[in-house]
């Protein structure tokens, strides 16, 4: 099939129409394949034009795919850039999860942690009633009862030293008791000598005054009951003390804030701690601000 060349009429200034010859289509013309350029020129020129056309098309295609790659690379942020949004501020500090709050105050120094505890009731409650908080705030020594079998060899060495010191204390106590008994005997002799007069001395009163200084627990029971000082540190590890030495420890540590035995503040019960501990288990007994206390300084006490 061959189609006659299409002639488009051109309107002249005088109103007459003049047919215009359209450019000739190539012989391989097909309605489905549009020629990119159709000029009635030589085959060499056509090839050159086609070459440049293809080259330019390829360059265009490359640029297009490069754009797509570029877009893919920036796909992560493109969505945000096209649709800028604002952060939804619906969280307050005290609405953060407790674990996060504890993680935050765990990064602060001890004084700041204590100040943090005093900021609000929520924070106070968080610190006071959370075991995690408790241990973090302490940052020093935790005291509790422990089974002797669970103590490691290193701790037992410390315990051996403690036992030696305990024996020395007991010797001193026995010698004092002997002295007291001798004094009492002398007093009784004196009283018997003055039997006719009224006896103003009550032996039991002097012994009761000593009961404050010495625990009323039997010695054997005291020996079995030990206090474990657990410092949350790799350097010092666990330190074992006997119950009898607890009050000396407390005096040495000086700072007894937040010491509670079953809710009883240790500040009040510090003077005769062993007596107060009688019959009640030492639980979660915590000493604050003991970062300066080392195993060595405790042994020296």
């Amino acid at each position: 099939l061959s189609f006659p060349p299409f002639q488009m009429p051109v309107l002249l200034p005088d109103g007459a129409a003049k047919p215009q010859q359209s450019p000739q289509k190539p012989s391989s013309f097909s309605p489905t394949k549009k020629p990119i350029v159709s000029f009635n020129v030589g085959s060499q020129v056509k090839k050159a034009i086609r070459f440049f056309t293809c080259a330019s098309a390829a360059v265009c295609a490359c640029y297009t795919s490069a754009d797509q790659v570029h877009a893919q690379h920036h796909e992560e942020t493109a969505a945000f850039e096209e649709h800028p949004a604002e952060i939804i501020y619906d969280t307050e500090f005290d609405e953060l999860p407790p674990e996060i709050l504890m993680k935050i105050i765990g990064q602060c120094d001890f004084n700041s942690q204590m100040h943090f505890r005093a900021t609000s009731r929520h924070m106070h409650s968080l610190v006071e009633h959370s075991d995690l908080a408790r241990r973090q705030v302490v940052g020093g020594v935790e005291i509790g009862t422990f089974p002797l079998a669970s103590v490691s060899a290193v701790e037992l060495n410390t315990l051996g030293q403690e036992e030696q010191q305990q024996e020395e204390i007991e010797r001193e106590r026995e010698s004092r008791l002997e002295m007291q008994q001798q004094v009492r005997l002398r007093q009784q002799r004196l009283m018997s000598l003055s039997a006719s007069s009224n006896n103003l001395l009550v032996p039991s009163s002097s012994s009761s005054s000593h009961s404050d200084d010495h625990p009323s627990l039997p010695d054997q029971q005291q020996k079995e009951q030990h206090i474990l000082l657990r410092r949350l540190s790799k350097r010092y590890g666990q330190i074992v003390l006997t119950m009898d030495r607890l009050k000396f420890m407390m005096r040495r540590l000086c700072v007894c804030h937040s010491l509670h035995i079953r809710g009883v503040p240790m500040d009040d019960s510090l003077a005769p701690p062993s007596r107060r501990l009688q019959g009640c288990e030492v639980r979660d007994l915590v000493v604050d601000r003991v970062s300066t206390v080392s195993q060595e300084s405790i042994v020296i006490i």
């Binding site: 005290d94 935050i104 120094d109 900021t119 609000s120 929520h122």
Partner: peptide, 19 residues
């Protein structure tokens, strides 16, 4: 909040003293 007083902490953290 490190090293701050109680009042400064309240201000920074916008906490109300409800004691």
């Amino acid at each position: 909040i490190n090293g701050k007083t109680v009042e400064e902490m309240r201000e920074i953290l916008q906490l109300e003293c409800d004691f």
